[in-house]
Simulated scan of single mutants.
Amino acid sequence: MTDFVLVAGTWLGAWAWDEVAAELRAAGHDVHALTLSGLAEKRDVPAGQQTHVRDVVEEVERRELRDVVLVGHSYAGIPVGQAAERIGGRLRRVVLVDADVAVDGESFLSGWPSEHVRRAVEEHGGHWPPQAADDYAGQGLTDDEIARIVAGATPHPGATLTEPAVMARPLGELPGTYVKCLLDGEEPCGAAAELLASDRWELVKLDTGHWPMFSEPRQLALVLHASATAA
């Protein structure tokens, strides 16, 4: 039995993992889906990126979890990667689901054209507003799945997007799996490609879009289950 800690990306909370969590529990695992500060039911809690790192670390320590698989989707790969380093021997594996990679000194917005995001944050009181339904087109989602995401999404605290990650060593030194969702690009690039050069990381591809917890929850759960037994 493995303890999974599941963390979704921008605009989403623990609710995004409901179907995946049910599949993992049916396979005998303990599952802890986590809402980061400033989002969903915690939307009124002030948050920077290090707040999100502490959210993950404190979840592991408060519950006294061992043999932990930390799962980060999209933006959450950055706080999850930092937390993985900080929980020490409690960690079994890191799984990044179509996620950004924590690199020391780099932020979520580093390395890609981000002026439109920065402008949106400035215009919306320090928060990045959620996407509209049309923005989810071409990602393997049904109309009902898109409606569910849009209805549950909350503005994302902007400070978490611009603050730099703090890593004492490269994430590639820890054991991990990178899940690439093919409708969002066929190959990992940038820091994800560099991460996969490590012999401690494996690549798994899913033929779906950037939100597989909605579009392919059972398939994603199977990948996570397999990661718990990976060498």
Score class of each variant (00 low, 15 high):
F4K: 02
F4R: 02
G9E: 02
G9D: 02
L12Y: 06
A14R: 11
W15E: 10
W17P: 06
W17L: 11
R25L: 06
A26D: 12
H29E: 06
H29P: 08
H29V: 13
V31S: 09
H32E: 07
A33D: 09
A33K: 03
A33H: 04
L34M: 11
T35Q: 09
T35G: 12
T35M: 12
L36F: 10
L36T: 05
L36E: 03
G38F: 14
G38H: 08
L39H: 13
L39A: 11
E41T: 13
R43E: 15
R43S: 15
D44A: 15
D44F: 14
P46H: 14
A47Y: 13
T51G: 11
T51L: 11
H52D: 10
V53I: 09
V57C: 08
E59W: 05
E59R: 12
V60W: 08
E61F: 10
R62Q: 13
R63T: 03
E64Y: 04
L65W: 06
R66M: 11
D67V: 08
V69F: 07
G72F: 05
H73A: 04
G77M: 05
G81T: 01
I87L: 12
R90V: 06
R90A: 15
R92P: 00
R93Y: 03
V94R: 01
V94A: 08
V97T: 00
V97F: 00
A99H: 04
A99V: 03
V101N: 04
V101I: 13
A102T: 04
V103Q: 06
D104S: 10
D104C: 04
W112T: 00
E115A: 15
E115S: 13
H116M: 12
H116P: 01
V117I: 14
R118T: 07
E123K: 13
G126Y: 12
G126H: 06
H127D: 10
P129Y: 12
P130F: 10
Q131Y: 12
D134L: 06
Y136T: 00
Y136W: 15
Y136L: 09
G138D: 00
I146V: 15
A147S: 14
G152Y: 08
P155N: 10
H156C: 08
H156S: 06
A159M: 10
T160I: 08
E163F: 08
P164F: 09
A165W: 10
V166P: 01
A168T: 12
E173K: 06
L174K: 09
P175A: 07
V179E: 00
L182Y: 01
G185R: 00
A192E: 02
A192Y: 03
L196T: 03
A197Y: 01
A197R: 15
E202R: 12
L203I: 01
K205T: 11
T208H: 05
W211A: 11
W211Q: 03
W211P: 00
F214Q: 04
F214I: 00
E216H: 13
R218W: 05
A221C: 10
L222Q: 12
L222F: 02
H225V: 09
A226M: 04
